[in-house]
Design a protein around this nucleic acid. Structure first.
Lengths: 396, 396
DNA sequence: TAAGTTAGTCTAGTGGATGAACAAAGTTTT
DNA sequence: AAAACTTTGTTCATCCACTAGACTAACTTA
């Protein structure tokens, strides 16, 4: 039935070690005594686990802290420089790579843009970026602990890229390619899922258990953080809310369906509307429209507002479906926050059920362009920390 | 940060005991040796845990089984008669109560119907039903282990009924009332959540991790089983998919929103359409329409088919959102399966994304009218089993 | 300086899992 | 039918990780 492992003292130690590490990570600097009393473990147990973590270089001792009327405590800190993680946001016409420490602080960053490259050409750019980041990595006990790539497409449970329509990719096993080349753990993830994870770990979503991240770019993808963890569905295909019908009998979408949300509320939708207006052809992209809106073009501003309204309709659905604590709007459309915000919020405060609106927060991305890259970096970090704790527990 | 308990020996024992009990429950009859090898625990450990479970009367030994070339095994069985659970489905104009054993087998059942009763009057009916079921309970080691009530409304995390529009209830603390009167564990749950849990535990959803249960009655509510457990959202208000917009700018709903799914795909929607046709007024309810459809009335059959199509639109959204293994359609509209099925399936096979359609199953309720009642009964059982294992572990 | 407080280590004890030996009760082989 | 083999289930010594509490270290306060 369930695939649960059996329970034994290894599991106990791993669990407690993880509790202690988390406590130190999120409450540092902190003493052994405080960890013990706050986590609820015995002082001796904490001491022993702390010694393990010190040996593994995952934490370190700083000088003594303030006394509170007795012996001064030795303060413990999470060793965020114990290793580094590489996160790549592979977009339709750009590639953003970051090298972060274990706390998601960016150490090196590299962005390139391109147009109409095929898979092989992009692969080369990808290798170049990764190798640049690898070279920039400082000395550390664990080195680069993993590489993650976020892609604008459907990724299955084995990290195969099944379909990336805007890149024109089908069935690409990038994971294997990277694993063979670099020989470190590789993670491939859908861009929206990664963005959600990024915001959850390092951005606007830090304090919430149920966070829905709406990646509004050329299309719309959604990442679902439910009960503090990423929900991926049976095969990894969840979050295709861009193809949720919000207009039965509406416009045909290339997905085969009609009235899809992303036909009304994405960058693509915005640009298509703008094309009907009388504006210069070199302004007919998001950057151009933003420029026009900045210069006070009322027609264009009205377009943004309409898009905000349609975004609101879909987000309303999200609220009714998930009852989340937070909805985060990210990706390229998020830069237009100021023209989207009002119509979006109006739609929601008018139409969302009253009891859903308590404790609900609607935010725009905090990490901006970096949500996805930081998100995939975070996957590797998470993985590294849990595996590292497990292995060291088992081998000692 | 996380509210995780610390890990110690009790947790280990509880976990393993639960693994053993589950193994026996779902694979009985089974020997100690088989449990050990299948679960991955040591023979001695299993023996000791089995002895505990025997003492608690949660399992029992039957005679010896078949030999496979050596000593004949002693077969173990889950003691489904160790206790009983009461589940009540409190509908808008009916009340269905069941008394089940720990495997969800119905021992006693009682249904009453009524019309336009206020809260106090329904409360009396409820007490009568519960007391009837209590009296019918056979002797057993643990007696009645809990009472669950499923209601057509919004229930918060403290089991308060915030709003039940069709009953005209607001802010009713039924849990407290029942706890004081009967002094056993009480669970109040939304009808769709309960239905989902019922189908997951005893019905069509047994074998799947991600199951979405669409309760299509007067309105539409949805219960979400994600990663094998019920997802309730931050405050318990998830699954309000009846108020998902599928027609932007569409008909006004009393919820304040427009174009809500349940305006197009519920019993209410069907009846409202039928009222426009030339049919006798005493036939203008679901039962009447079914009768007309049975007699071959094409106009009415077309109405059902249209409803099936609209159901398909929403279910399509569900598939895109959750990538579930299974969608179950339950509640009153499910009885009209034969007229809904074709148009619904057509909508989905035409429009759902191809990769979502693999490993996807769309079923109608297996438990029929009893999904909700059995679901709330299952909550109590689940609770009883886990608490019982915990306590006995702690007190020994 | 003495008394009190807090931090951290050390040690004996405990609970529960494990592996191996063993008894019990079969089947198969000679 | 006796001997050899198999499988089931129990028992027991051992191991591991957590706990309680004693103890040492280091600081504050009277």
């Amino acid at each position: 039935m369930s695939t649960h492992q059996t329970w034994n003292h290894h599991v106990v130690k791993k669990g407690n070690k993880s509790l202690v590490l988390d406590k130190i990570k999120y409450n540092s600097p902190i003493s052994r005594a405080s960890v013990a009393s706050q986590v609820g473990l015995n002082k001796g147990t904490v001491s022993s686990l702390v010694n393990d973590l010190l040996e593994e270089h995952l934490i370190y001792e700083s000088g003594p802290g303030e006394s509170s009327g007795g012996r001064r405590p030795v303060m413990l800190l999470f060793n965020e420089k114990a290793g580094y993680s590489i996160g790549i946001d592979l977009g339709v016409n750009y590639l953003l790579g970051v090298l972060t420490d274990l706390n998601g602080n960016i150490h090196t960053e590299k962005q390139i843009t391109f147009k109409n490259l095929n898979y092989e050409e992009i692969e080369i750019k990808l290798f170049e970026t990764i190798e640049y980041l690898l070279k920039s990595t400082p000395e550390s006990p664990h080195g680069v602990i993993g590489i993650g790539v976020g892609v604008p497409g459907i990724v299955d449970k084995d990290d195969n890229i099944l379909l990336a329509p805007n890149l024109n990719w089908r069935n690409i096993n990038l994971k294997e390619v990277l694993e063979e080349r670099y020989n470190i753990p590789i993670i491939i993830e859908n861009e929206a899922n990664a963005g959600a994870y990024g915001e959850k770990n390092f951005g606007a979503g830090k304090d919430f258990e149920n966070v829905i991240y709406v990646s509004a770019g050329i299309g719309i993808g959604v990442g679902l953080i439910l009960n503090d963890s990423l929900y991926k569905g049976s095969n990894g295909f969840s979050g295709e809310l861009g193809h949720m019908t919000i207009q039965a009998g509406g416009a045909k979408c290339r997905c085969g369906n009609e009235g899809c949300w992303e036909l009304y509320a994405s960058e693509q939708a915005l640009v298509r509307q703008a094309e009907k207006l009388d504006i210069p052809s070199d302004m007919q992209d998001l950057e151009g429209l933003v420029t026009l809106a900045e210069s006070g073009n009322d027609e264009i501003i009205a377009l943004f507002e309409q898009t905000g309204d349609y975004l609101g309709i879909g987000i309303n659905n999200i609220i009714n479906i998930f009852n989340p604590q937070q909805v985060i709007i990210g990706n390229r459309l998020a830069y237009s926050e100021k023209w989207l915000k009002d119509s979006l919020n109006k739609r929601i405060s008018n139409q969302a059920l009253w009891f859903q609106q308590n404790d609900l927060q609607i935010d725009f991305s905090e990490l901006s362009t970096r949500s996805t890259a930081l998100g995939v970096a975070a996957f590797s970090i998470e993985n590294f920390l849990s595996v590292s704790i497990q292995q060291d527990t088992a081998t000692e």
